[in-house]
């Protein structure tokens, strides 16, 4: 279970303090799929980073399975991210010097993983329809293929929580469908919790819960 409690995050730009996230509170049960909809600059990505332990809030708590992640030391928080959380970004996030397979396996460089990891990475490549791109470098892949590899990488650590920021941004409709099917299957088979930031109301409509965000404040849409 994820509990976000009265979280505030502000930035100072040109001497002016802007609250990107302004006293947000909500909770998500394990295995839930939640979407956050909002305009650009509404604070969605910052909120996702606060939940994922990437940026420290000015105040408030993010409690995951009973532990306030912002009370953890940096090493513990890094291990926690490595074991339990994955991110999918709205930009190309592959390392250009690594092959598709190596990019998927990259998180394993920072933690302890079993001997079956490579096999699992190959399976994920197959799920993304890229089994023939195992040894291809990002520069030889299309934008859509790169996104699919980044999505496959998000599952290599068998995460409990996936935080996805516009995960299907530049994918064609068919691939978008496949990604959504993968998310659904991961959610149903492995009880993975998803928080998806999206502009796409169709995708949001497929999630169990929807939040809207505006000027750093969230409100829940009641279906």
């Amino acid at each position: 279970m994820i509990e976000v409690r009265h979280i505030i995050k502000s930035y100072t730009i040109d001497g002016q303090t802007l609250k990107a996230v302004d006293g947000v509170s909500f909770s998500i049960k394990k295995g839930e799929v939640l979407s956050i909809i909002g305009h650009s600059g509404s604070g969605k990505t910052t909120l996702l980073s606060l939940i994922g332990g990437l940026t420290r809030p000015d105040s408030g708590e993010v409690v995951i399975d009973g532990t306030n992640i912002w009370a953890m030391g940096d090493n513990s928080l890094s291990e926690f991210r490595n074991r339990k959380i994955s991110f999918i970004y709205q930009f190309a996030s592959l390392i250009p010097t690594l092959t598709a397979l190596e990019n998927i396996m990259l998180p394993t460089a920072f933690g302890h993983y079993g001997a079956d990891t490579e096999q699992y990475a190959r399976e994920l490549l197959g799920l993304m329809g890229l089994e023939n791109k195992t040894n291809s470098y990002p520069s030889h892949l299309s934008g859509g293929q790169q996104r699919r590899i980044a999505i496959a990488r998000a599952f290599i650590n068998r995460p409990e929580i996936v935080l996805a920021d516009e995960p299907t941004g530049d994918l064609d409709e068919d691939t978008e469908e496949e990604v959504i099917r993968l998310f659904t299957s991961m959610n149903q088979d492995q009880q993975v919790t998803f928080i998806i930031v999206t502009h796409n109301r169709d995708i949001a409509a497929k999630t169990q819960r929807q939040l809207t965000m505006s000027n750093g404040v969230v409100s829940e849409l009641v279906k």
Binding site: S78, Y89, A109
Partner: peptide, 10 residues
């Protein structure tokens, strides 16, 4: 930053 997000320690 991406490596840190994947769990790389300082």
């Amino acid at each position: 930053g991406l490596l840190r997000a994947m769990g790389a320690k300082r």
